[in-house]
Nucleic acid binder design. Sequence first.
DNA 1: ATGAAAGCGCTAACAT
DNA 2: ATGTTAGCGCTTTCAT
Lengths: 342, 342
Amino acid sequence: MSNSMQEAGRTVTIRDVAAAAGVSIGTASKALNGVGRMRQETRARVMAAARQLGFRPNPLAQGLLGGRTYTVGLITCDSFGRFSIPVMLGAEDALGDGQISVLMCDTRDDPIRERHHVERLLDRRVEGVIVTGRRTEPRPSIGRDLPVPVVYAMTQSLDPSDLSLIPDDEGGGVLAAQHLLATGRTRIGHITGPHGFQAARKRAAGLGTVLSDAGLRVSGEVLYGEWSEEWGRQGADILLRTDPGVDAIFCGSDQIARGVAETLRERGRRVPDDVALVGFDNWEPMALGSRPPLTTVDMNLNEIGRLAARHLLDIIAGRPGEAGVRTVPARLVVRASTRHGT
Amino acid sequence: MSNSMQEAGRTVTIRDVAAAAGVSIGTASKALNGVGRMRQETRARVMAAARQLGFRPNPLAQGLLGGRTYTVGLITCDSFGRFSIPVMLGAEDALGDGQISVLMCDTRDDPIRERHHVERLLDRRVEGVIVTGRRTEPRPSIGRDLPVPVVYAMTQSLDPSDLSLIPDDEGGGVLAAQHLLATGRTRIGHITGPHGFQAARKRAAGLGTVLSDAGLRVSGEVLYGEWSEEWGRQGADILLRTDPGVDAIFCGSDQIARGVAETLRERGRRVPDDVALVGFDNWEPMALGSRPPLTTVDMNLNEIGRLAARHLLDIIAGRPGEAGVRTVPARLVVRASTRHGT
DNA sequence: ATGAAAGCGCTAACAT
DNA sequence: ATGTTAGCGCTTTCAT
């Protein structure tokens, strides 16, 4: 197997390849990299020797010379949580295609650790950094004058000269609202997370805009609370008391929606017949485990990660785009909680 | 800020430091690394210059020379799923302490991609590899004659000469069973995942052992099904029909337990008063969102990751342990589903 | 106590 | 068409 998988033991260098092929080390290099002129036969001989010996160029040496490391850092403040994971996945995907490897680290939301990791990444000469977060709330920049570009994904930097990619929460609210209107609902309530969260306010704003354009308003008031099932259960009771005729509820998260679904069932309201339900996140274990399965807004986190990676690669390649906070469209996933007969 | 954060612009080399300190490059190196003999004053002068200039040794150069990269690869087959994440976190934690950086990649369960990533990691001269998985089911080794050590975490290699760290599923079953017996339950049912899963069988075995030691047996039969809430709901109905007097149910996952909890409530059984409930995984969004919150078995995935990392570091450092499949103890987390008054 | 020089593995000028 | 050489940034003998 020595032809494709490096074996234990001494490392094969280009020197060995050159010797085996009976050429100089420089010629071997050129042959392997497909540059320079040389006889076809020579090139083939070198390639054969390299394959034969299981030669793998040492990236440290290459990097040392070329100044490139083909490595980027990925910093997560989410302890690899639910939100940053799809983002990382998308990023890893896009970077992998570009032959870039990913150095991963987790800050546990600790600025000290974060600083430490940034330093270490720079030590390692990463060519760029992606920062992901648990929420999209603005956060301090990881550093103004870093020698490499930085892109924020699923979190945003307070520094407007940084590029941040976040989901389109408002657009998600719009999608949910339009869908509910399209299915004939008019008394639409909204139960969501803490008012302190920009994401919660924006989702509510999206809903509000669509409703006022239709000459409607949110049934009751927007109910801000927590990102929990328990709050969903409570909120549903509050809403049913405020407006017993409510025929749809848009929730700020799938967890909240699940709590709402439970209360509705216990209060004898059928979903979706009596009350339609839309969640947010498309967190499948929650959305699918719910009865009925939830129609929900998917933030396209994979796409955010992919875009972040691509932007980073662009900047590294010297094609800087505009900085600032950029928003990635969301997508509605329709399931039984708004649709009969499924 | 040039003293602690590298600035944009040309990189500071040891050459610059040496020049600034008025010493030779070799002396500067020795001073910075605290080796060799030299006047205290000289050493101090070099250090000062280095700090002043914001010097950071280039790890590529160091690695090239020393043959070490201080890097390990982390391969996940779980798309960073629920199980591998805590493992990765633990690993990253342990490795970070050892000044080792982590190159991360995801295989999406695709052997081609996996192979590809392994090659790339070897190209980059990682000093070791950790493989994590979505389940603990045995899987093919990532390669017999790799030039670096490999440790499997939360997955196991079919090759017994590999070291694999997996949770103690059987022990988890024992913990659950003992807890239920200790709280006075005697008619204990078990609803779990597919019989095809070793994990499911082992958890059931743990339960079975404790019960037979107590002169009891599983109420009804062990109900194998799927890892879903829906199956939990179904299974609960089956069990209630088989043994209406069941006073406790141990579930193979928190999702199943959640489904069970719902059905029990709908059938008018109080949890834990009439039926105690124990889940598995300690997947907090599920376990805490359930009504009541679930007592459950925590597999200590963080610890598995940490141990995997430590073992890997040991092997890298030339202290190889024994190979084979090793098991990490689980831990019971008691919540309201088995305990009154919470 | 300090400096000079060799070399890690590789690439890219420059010679031949 | 091929070989020789000079580094990339650093550590480590070996001289001084």
